[in-house]
Design a protein around this nucleic acid. Structure first.
Lengths: 123, 123
DNA sequence: CGCAATGTTCAATAGTTCTTGAACAAATTG
DNA sequence: CAATTTGTTCAAGAACTATTGAACATTGCG
């Protein structure tokens, strides 16, 4: 395993890449779960998403999420802890992440990959 | 040419499809131009986007935008007039369209397809 | 009616994305 | 050190996307 994976700088985060990343139901579910986790200010590791698919497929989606700047990975032992890059995203695209997460929360019932998540009422 | 093309109902509009639609730079530019046009409360027809690519490619992107519920097409003579489905989108995904358009406006310089558009300061 | 204007549809192609299982790498634990 | 745990990387395949030019359909106009 390599060291901490590469992440784009805040300024390198691009709108189309972020939107494309969020448009995949599995990645949207990952982001959604990370957003829920923000409330208790802790991180999640890869294994916490095992309900969303096979390990190798998740690793593929994690890489996409990192490359587009949506999340950050911190290596700790055999685990990788992940969190949303909330500050960078809010700085680059104000209101976007909140709107997406809120919309996903409202639509949790019809976004089948989200159905397994803890659904929390937003607002 | 057929009659007025099919559009999804408000409730049929899906978040992942909308995000995917917005993630293509050409479609983002189309949506952006339509958003600018909202200010003068008028519509645009297909030809107004000829700067963005070949006719047949634009027709492809227009179809995508219609199918995902982002825009509506009205047939009038040999023209099709298009507008954003602002009310439906705001009802389904509050704040999302504004956040995307505002972010696109800020990044107009680096979204090369937008460079040819009238860039207007938002806020 | 014949011709031009406006868009759509079709077929073909090149490139991309998602998914899977197997192999691999690094750290931890006995 | 050997075995386990945790994730990543690789190769391969199926499916989808974007793009192009040609053909087509509809309307408007001389």
């Amino acid at each position: 395993m390599s060291r901490t994976p590469l992440h784009p700088t805040r300024e390198q985060i691009e709108l189309p890449m972020v939107l494309d990343c969020l448009s995949d139901p599995i990645r949207l579910a990952i982001v959604y779960q990370l957003a829920q986790q923000e409330r208790v200010s802790s991180e999640l590791c890869c294994g916490d998403f095992s309900g969303l698919g096979a390990k190798s497929n998740l690793a593929y989606h994690f890489a996409k999420l990192r490359e587009c700047g949506l999340m950050q990975t911190r290596v700790a032992g055999t685990n990788r802890f992940m969190r949303l890059r909330r500050e960078d995203l809010d700085a680059r695209f104000p209101g976007l992440l909140d709107a997406v997460i809120k919309s996903a929360a409202r639509d949790a019932g019809r976004l089948q990959v989200l159905s397994g998540c803890d659904v929390v009422k937003m607002d």
